[in-house]
Amino acid sequence: MLDLLLQPLSEPFFVRALLAIVLSGTTCACLGAYVVLRRMAFVSTALTHSILPGVVGALLLGLSPYLGALVAALLTATGAAWLASRKGTSEDSAVGVMLSVMFAAGIALMQQANSWRDFAGLLFGSVVSVGREDLIVIGITAALVLFGLRVLHKELELASFDEEYAALLGARPALMRAVLLVLVALGSVACVRLVGALLTTALFVIPAATGVLLGRTVPQVMAWGAGCALLGGFSGLYLSYYAPAVPSGAGIVLCCALPYLAARLFAPRR
């Protein structure tokens, strides 16, 4: 049994994949706490899907795919905020418009690049192909996001719980919302190698939803969420190692859903 766990560790790609899971899983779970508590799951889906045109565009232009992803996600966030700032368009539909426009643009760009197969990793994730440069980028974005969450913890918590009181104190809840969107954009960049643009939102929502069932304070929600993401990430990776028919991205998401299901069934009602 122990051999089954230790044997893959002799492969460098597996160790890199584990590291990537630790870094981006923790980041996404902590950010996800606010995404779930503020009911921003749809916005986070839009941001993660808009990575597609960003990365493809960057590859066509010969730029860094991570830069493209970040720019596209930020563009989606500002675009949705601008569309919703006019009366008559709800935020919900503004996000829906941006999500579909960006994704369609991504598909059109992929046609230009003339090869769908190259982008399978982008769409569905390929944590086993994470290289050293990828790890560095993931590490930097994870550090930035966790730093932001730590130093703005009390403001983010306050603005998420009682927006009006945050405004009354002068703690700028609208700014905090914008900061959170930027952090989600950064977090999506960190996660896209793990599970792909289509499923990144799962890493924001599933672990944090588990955390909300189990935690009684925001830090507890984050800790439970991170635990769930690590457990799911590790088991998904081992699963796809021993059963290569299961792609790693799908395996990770499916394995993250198990702790959620367990918490949903067995967590005490509050």
């Binding site: 719980f161 009006e164 009354l168 935690g215 304070t217 507890q220």
Partner: peptide
Amino acid sequence: RLGRSRLAYLAQRPHLTELFPLKLRRL
């Protein structure tokens, strides 16, 4: 203006996020 510590306002129905994980002491 906003940001005045010597003033407190309690709305008739405060819009608090439901089911937010927060203890009374922290509030």
